[in-house]
Write a protein that binds this DNA or RNA. Structure first.
Length: 140
DNA sequence: GCCAACGTTGGC
DNA sequence: GCCAACGTTGGC
């Protein structure tokens, strides 16, 4: 299983909206960046991801699961753009802020810290474990 | 609201 | 294929 991080401005699409979609989930449409798209193409059903609120909050607020492999993005007419579907699994008992990530030396290589602009990014198993620990989350 | 970092576009 | 111009993202 691989780990990822999905960024969204809560003004546009928030964790609460994601949770409201339930087990069906929702397509992660609207991504217009090749790097981010390529990561989505690499995703498998069952892969886990962090749901991160950019701009407002600037924190990891929950854990999601990939529930549909990459398919054409319904928000675009251009077949170049594809996206996966994700569904909410659980919220973080303690939101993990960007500040906390920056202060933890174990996360110094994390893409969230090194490239703040990439909206879909890979997370290593080690980084995954650290953030779960910081967020008080067990079993994910 | 500002601006640095980054990605994309398009003229040459 | 280079690179200047432009647009967007997102932290501060």
């Amino acid at each position: 299983m691989n780990y990822w991080l999905f960024k969204s401005e809560p003004d546009t699409w928030s964790w609460d909206q994601q949770v409201a979609k339930g087990e069906i989930g929702e397509e992660w449409g609207g991504v217009r960046n090749y790097q981010a798209r390529n990561f989505m193409r690499a995703m498998e059903i069952g892969d886990r991801g962090f749901f991160y609120h950019s701009n407002i909050g600037k924190e990891v607020v929950g854990v999601v699961e990939v529930c549909a492999k990459a398919h054409p993005d319904s928000t675009s007419d251009d077949p170049r753009w594809e996206c996966v579907d994700i569904r909410a699994l659980t919220k973080m008992p303690v939101p993990v802020t960007l500040e906390m990530c920056k202060q933890d030396h174990r996360l110094s290589e994390m893409v969230l810290v090194t490239n703040s602009r990439l909206s879909v990014q890979p997370v290593t198993p080690e980084q995954w474990a650290v953030i779960c620990e910081l967020g008080g989350l067990e079993g994910y």
